[in-house]
Write a protein that binds this DNA or RNA. Structure first.
Lengths: 238, 238, 238, 238
DNA sequence: TCTTAACCGAGACGGTACGTCAAGTCTTCCT
DNA sequence: AGGAAGACTTGACGTACCGTCTCGGTTAAGA
């Protein structure tokens, strides 16, 4: 299956533009800011909305330009100024939709990354883990998502609201989807009932993030197999 | 134990100021830049050193100010301008020593982080791993090193020369020091001879970096124990 | 009389801000730079002007601050940084309007100096010359214009585009206005038809600039009379 | 004849290095500074001078480099740093001899300009004036002295001590030398006894400086003749 | 012959200002 | 009322020189 990774920010358009209809101002908005598309009118018609509707064309152009720049030069090279120029859009059109660089980058990333990550159900823990990790590795090595992820995780270190958004909109959904793999294994009696699924997931994905960010070793297929086997059996010979 | 983590950038002066004696100019220098004190006269006396010597006082003041700012506001808040002001030093005095923010931050981090990480030798793999991971967790949670590490790893994503320096001056020395733990266990026959030490280290530290950067779960003592036990025995009940 | 000394940089707005609407970039712009407001849309309405218009308030504040500093500390003391601070304006707001210090100083000078210099028409060459020189002397000794002029002429020596701008926007208009004095005298038959008006002007103003810059003697009323009489009658007794 | 224009700063070495033996310090020295070589021991042996004597080779190299740079890029481009580099000399070697850029430039100029200007004595005022002006024009148009003079006069506007030095060491000697031309003419009864020599000199050289600095017209031979004739006879036909 | 004082080159020092860039906000006219 | 444009303030960047200050090393004169 293909559980859409991210809880779509509300209604119709799959996670993407954080169309926050945000008259947010000043410092107060700052923290709520990077949250992105948390709330959105669920009604498709959106009744009492006056004035010129937002251009979906602009949405697309902005996200495309952002993804492009993010991939080419990393998040550092994705200046709002350049995004606006490439998208043929005014800067305020961007700021009307996203509160800051980070939020835009996050949405661009999600657009690319979402729904690439199945939560497989093969019947055995070992192959479920292998499939999950392999899918992640493929996504970050074969698509622009890898560079974007690294840059975004970096930015999240310095931008607390973005950090929150990252956890809520990327990490948590992703972990929830994966957690069921472990829970199913417990239900099946494959592993001990007391096993902490979070810990298992950390040992599964932690090494992968580690190699992605530090580049000390490649994210090869061998790596995937090695991690899963070690995690299943431990280093101690049995 | 106590192996100074970082190969001191040349001979005598303990890892710290990347006193590269760098008349580096132009594009060629750009990449070699963040390398830090890779090369240095091997002669211990450094005979023909002309001109006024660099002030060690300034070295200290700069690194102290950098560490302070790095801890307070993260790497983003560590502007060279502010470092200079706090250290009571001209900007050029900083740029004479380090080619850019990242390189300075890296040295400030190493000053703080070095020699905090012993490579323990208790006789058993399990307790060696536990000690190593616990030391790391302690360093990043109880000292400024944690925030510095996160910020630096972030910056390394966008600044390739800094990335190289990070790998060469932080990751590699650290991993080398830890690799011997696994190798000793193999020698002792505690674990299978074919075991890949790098993979073991990734499963040991990967989860820790993962939690440090994503903050999805705390870096508790329980975590340390859990990781090591899982790594030793695997999830599959035996 | 009263002919506004300087050809107003385009049409409506009296010589002052070199609102070059300059998206000038790169080396090519370098020379055209200090020209000031040479070209400007000739249409009075300037129909398709998009984006936020430049703040006239900022124009005024910048020129006022520049004039102030120029007068207080000479051109050397007029740093862009300080002008920006005094005018309560960002540096880029200045650089958007003027390409460099010199150009700004030139405009500040013109704002002060313009329309202070009538081209008198009294009916006799001697008294016309006397009036013209006296007006100049008064302007440079009684107003800030003197210090500004000296500093600007100095800067023009080292900054070729500024030199060009100086000639085009200050010297030529001024000389043209004064040349008619001599031409009228020729028409009246007061002096020989072959007389070179430029030479006459050089003998009239040259000594004045000389004293302004070298300060070897004062720019007194006696001086004015002396120069004019000598120029009219020569040293040889008749 | 060839009256050495400048009162040689003391003894043996023709105006050149301002060997001020200056342990000058602090603000008090500031004004006396640019004065250059005012005092110097007249005794050739200089008895009680201990320590290594100053290198005359350095003197020469510095002045040569300064002249070169002054000519090439104007005074703005003559940075002490570059002079030191070209002369193969330490910066302090320069600062030991001259208190600042201006003073060095002044000496470099004098080295070039001195003794180029005869104070002719042909027996007639008209031809004396013509010879004097022609010599000046030749010096500033055919040798580097012109660019140096302009740059120096410029710098003197912003650097008061340099301004003083300029007047004392360049203008006054030059004017004194020329004043005798006028005084001789008065003695000869060629012109009226009440004639102010300074005014005459201003009308002679003022136009020349004017054209040198403003470049509005060339400093041609015609110009020389025109100025002298106008000065002799006036504009009014007789 | 040995001090000792002043020089020498090199180059680091604390500063100031430069001109550039991008951030996020504000203001205009147009659709 | 949204959109494109382009102004605005702010703040840091990395560079270039300033004039001063050490360094280790000459180079004489005086003891």
């Amino acid at each position: 299956m293909t559980g859409t990774l991210i809880p779509p920010p509300a209604g119709q358009d799959g996670a993407v533009p954080a169309n926050d209809r945000q008259p947010a101002k000043g410092a107060a908005a700052k923290d709520a800011a990077a949250k992105g598309a948390a709330a959105k009118a669920s009604a498709p018609a959106e009744p009492g909305r006056r004035g010129r509707p937002r251009s979906e064309e602009a949405d697309r152009a902005i996200l495309a330009a952002a993804t492009e720049l993010l991939t080419e030069h990393g998040l550092a090279g994705m200046s709002i100024e350049e995004v606006a120029a490439r998208a043929g859009v005014g800067k305020s059109t961007i700021y009307r939709r996203w509160p800051n660089r980070g939020a835009l980058a996050l949405d661009a990333f999600l657009t690319e990354f979402s729904s690439q990550l199945p939560a497989p159900d093969t019947g055995s823990l070992r192959s479920d883990l292998r499939a999950a990790l392999r899918a992640w590795v493929r996504a970050v090595t074969k698509t622009p998502a890898g560079r974007m992820l690294a840059g975004l995780l970096a930015e999240a270190q310095r931008d607390p609201p973005l950090g929150n958004a990252w956890r809520e909109r990327v990490m948590e959904p992703l972990r929830s989807a994966h957690r069921v793999i472990v829970e199913r294994a417990i239900e099946r009696g494959e592993i001990a009932p007391g096993t902490d699924p979070d810990l298992v997931l950390d040992l599964l994905f932690g090494p992968a993030y580690h190699r992605l960010l530090n580049r000390h070793r490649p994210l090869s297929d061998n790596f995937v197999r090695g991690v899963v086997d070690l995690l299943m059996d431990g280093v101690t010979p049995r």
